[in-house]
């Protein structure tokens, strides 16, 4: 469930990377895209992202030539029509993260990433796992219900002794006298 947002974020960042790649700034082609995707918070990986390439084979060295890597992975159908239209699915290498092993797969059609899938998202119990702890926008209307929640304590920015007198915490403490 959380994955959708994560994937969307990944897609966005991958898209940006891809844009860079298409303009020829990322000479490492697909493998770079894949690993960067992994490193940009899809996984919340703390360590350095995978420098490896996974099963995609590094193809695409893009040495000098035209608009970045003329691609063609060793994996699936690289319908690569001459220039820069790499297609196929590419897997990043598996990374150990705080959330368990994570591997990301991207699907590329005509040089554009069309899908990002996290392949390994289960822990040893086979439960699906949350793979990103990144913050996302939170709507006030979604949390208003908590206002009426029964709380035993209150967290807020440090207040002076005077401000305490009119605080919610003071009311709670008074109730518990």
């Amino acid at each position: 469930m959380k994955l959708r947002g994560t994937a969307a974020a990944a897609l966005a960042s991958a898209g940006i990377l891809l844009a860079g790649w298409q303009t020829g700034t990322q000479v490492n082609g697909i493998s770079t895209v894949a690993s960067s995707t992994t490193a940009t918070g899809t996984t919340g990986a703390t360590g350095p992202g995978p420098s490896g390439t996974g099963s995609s084979g590094t193809g695409a060295s893009g040495s000098t030539g035209s608009a970045g890597a003329s691609g063609s992975s060793s994996s699936s159908g690289s319908s690569g029509s001459s220039k820069s239209s790499a297609s196929g699915t590419y897997k990043g290498s598996t990374v150990q993260t705080r959330f368990g092993p994570v591997q990301v797969q991207i699907t590329v059609a005509n040089g554009k990433i069309t899908d990002v899938t996290a392949l390994q998202l289960t822990n040893s119990d086979g439960k699906s796992m949350q793979i990103s702890n990144r913050a996302a926008p939170l709507l006030r209307s979604k949390v208003l219900a908590a206002q009426s929640a029964n709380v035993q304590t209150v967290s807020g920015a440090t207040i002076t002794s005077d401000a305490y007198l009119t605080s919610l915490q003071a009311a709670l403490d008074a109730a518990n006298l």
């Binding site: 908590a146 209150v154 009119t166 919610l168």
Partner: peptide, 19 residues
């Protein structure tokens, strides 16, 4: 659990959410 309310910075007498 112990439930902590989090103060609304715009109005210190209301809570935004809990944890």
């Amino acid at each position: 659990a112990w439930k902590a309310g989090i103060v609304d910075p715009a109005d210190r007498r209301t809570l935004i959410t809990g944890y």
